[in-house]
Design a protein around this nucleic acid. Structure first.
Lengths: 369, 369
DNA sequence: CTGTTAGCGCCTTCAG
DNA sequence: CTGAAGGCGCTAACAG
């Protein structure tokens, strides 16, 4: 069976040793092609230098034959820079973050970039720690999504860390939070929430409650503020005791709704949860309390994550093109690779125009008679 | 404003050049500590060699002072191996995969491992391509989740690619598909589905339909088979025309359900969708057709993704500990680092015991009177 | 225990 | 245009 009768052209590589064959190196390729290491290198990577066509194809052949694949680590060491983009999110299972991640990954492989991923579990100490260990990777880009709160004790340390990183040539992009003074993909949280408020008023609602995350969470605060100011424009105020804070998660929404219910819900009110996962939790809380969301109390969210079209009632929300946000983040990081001609130092900090949001009215906020 | 009056002790580091300061190297540290490169290296990494405490602390001090962070690429080149685990999934936004990813990431950073991520978008050509480009990373582990179908034309090429990779010292772990003969985290799809069938029969159901993904998808096939054989045990057969194939996605479930409805649904039947995202789509399809899921037709899924507790009716399903599956995958990859004492060549292929699944009955399958 | 010295795989001047 | 040689940051024998 294991005889070595040449199997004809069917067996392309001579029966390779099946024991620990390490990958071919560039030197192997060069030797096989009968050229120098330099020539091999120049033909295989996108060097600016040009190479004699005959040599080049000999190299390409050899590389294919040996199944050569350049060692990215070695390239990184030699070039002094990697092709890595590091993405750090709060929680991968949260649709908000997984959508953003999908966008980053999609954009990345249109540029032969590798994306690495880490999760903070919503702990800003941990976030700082992660960013610190990220330095070892020497990523070309660091994208930070969520989980930062204002006035956080580790805030300053994080900023310093990121500044050092940029000073070393890295690019950092923040998603929906620019307090730190870096490139940012802004999401128009405030005006999206204001638009939602206006739409709800237009549907006939006059009483409002809101389920918000920790107030220090910039995103949560902006959405709350936008919502209340949208209502103010219609001459409506939301009672202070109808604003409840809880975790920025599904369970947070559930708990928040429970306390709202405990305090007494009005038949004609709508509760605005500052994000969809919270809203979805709120729907369940209502149901578990024997109430019918939509009919008994209206609910609205923010983000337009995929699942809100499959809950019942389908959720009125504010659409945020999350996948696009992820792509935009990476594009923003990569643009103008050498900041040579920035007019003033603030230019590189300019957030650019925020990504647009739009209200989507569904069944959870039926028009009031 | 930009004067340079020393700001007192507030400025910890001597006003560092704000222009492109590249990270400190090990050599910088060694010099600052007044020791040799080797000593610095030995004190900073977990070398087996021991070093004089005095020297060691001098090095540690210098490293801290210079904010040194080892260049992982350089370490990889020198050591000949990386700390990278490459995870390739079909679709990051799918809760099934994002849960697994979360598990892998969680397990990874208990081992200073870095996880990189790529998405196949359910295209097996793309999967092959991804695995190929992965070689450049020289990852220590490759974890493949989903998106492979039996009899796929690129199957053989993929197998070869992965074998080469293992031959070079890498570890591959497949999730819920062992056709290729690699380490696998098995999910007990068949018996989970059979248990579900039994439970449904116990609830009083006698008529069944199933929404399945492409039959070549191992996971889909196993769940279908398990389900039907579970029914057979109760003497029940599912009509061939009540098994419809569609995409393994939410929209697939929606479309599948539509055609089931078009063919005529029975009031006393339950439709089993082979995964939760399909089931959730099915719920919406029912609703859009004016039917009430649970009451008019029962629905059951598989996976127990988080959102099924927030849809209405809450979904009966089979729980799969997805996050744990992710962790298990990485652990499996890392165990027994040198396959020195494997009894026979099949040993390394042994799937180990499959992760247990368990039926969770909820509101979408009310007990039949 | 410490320092010197080769590499690791690749890129990139610098001479031919 | 090509090849030889030095270097990237770090590790791992190998001598002291």
């Amino acid at each position: 069976m294991t005889g070595n009768t040449p199997d004809g052209p069917t067996a392309p590589s001579l029966d390779a040793g099946s024991r620990r064959s390490s990958p071919a190196t560039l030197e192997d390729v060069a030797r096989a092609a009968g050229v120098s290491l330099a020539t091999a290198s120049r033909s295989l990577n996108g060097s600016s230098r040009t190479v004699n066509a005959a040599y080049r194809s000999k190299v390409l052949d050899a590389a294919a034959r040996l199944n050569y694949s350049p060692n990215l680590s070695a390239q990184a060491v030699a070039r002094g820079s990697t092709m890595t983009v590091a993405l750090v999110v709060a929680d991968i299972t949260d649709p908000y973050f997984s959508s953003i991640a999908a966008g980053v990954v999609a954009e990345a492989d249109q540029g032969r970039l590798i994306v690495t991923m880490a999760a903070t579990e919503r702990d800003s100490e941990r976030e700082l720690e992660i960013v610190r260990t990220l330095r070892g990777q020497r990523p070309k880009v660091i994208i930070l999504a969520g989980s930062r709160r204002e006035g956080d004790p580790s805030e300053e340390a994080l900023r310093r860390e990121l500044e050092d990183y940029e000073r070393a040539g890295g690019r950092v992009v923040l998603i929906s939070r620019n307090e730190l003074g870096f490139r940012t993909v802004q999401i128009d949280n405030a005006s999206g929430a204001a638009d939602l408020a206006t739409a709800l008023v237009g549907l006939g609602y006059r009483r409002f409650s809101v389920l918000t995350g920790n107030r220090e969470l910039k995103t949560a605060a902006d959405r709350l503020d936008g919502f209340t100011s949208g209502l103010e424009r219609a001459g409506i105020r939301v009672e202070a005791d109808r604003v409840v804070q809880s975790a920025f998660t599904r369970d947070g929404g559930y708990e928040g709704m429970r306390s709202l219910i405990a305090a007494g819900v009005q038949a004609d009110e709508v509760v605005f949860a500052v994000n969809d996962v919270m809203a979805v939790g709120a729907l369940s809380a209502l149901r578990d309390a024997g109430l019918t969301p939509g009919a008994d109390v209206a609910v609205a969210g923010f983000d337009d994550i995929p699942t809100v079209q499959d809950v019942w009632p389908t959720l009125t929300t504010v659409n945020v093109p999350l996948v696009e946000v992820g792509r935009a983040a990476l594009r923003l990081a990569l643009e103008e690779t050498d900041a040579s001609v920035s007019a003033d130092s603030d230019a590189s900090t300019a957030p650019g125009s925020p990504v647009a949001t739009s209200v989507v009215v569904r069944d959870s906020t039926p028009r009031r008679a």
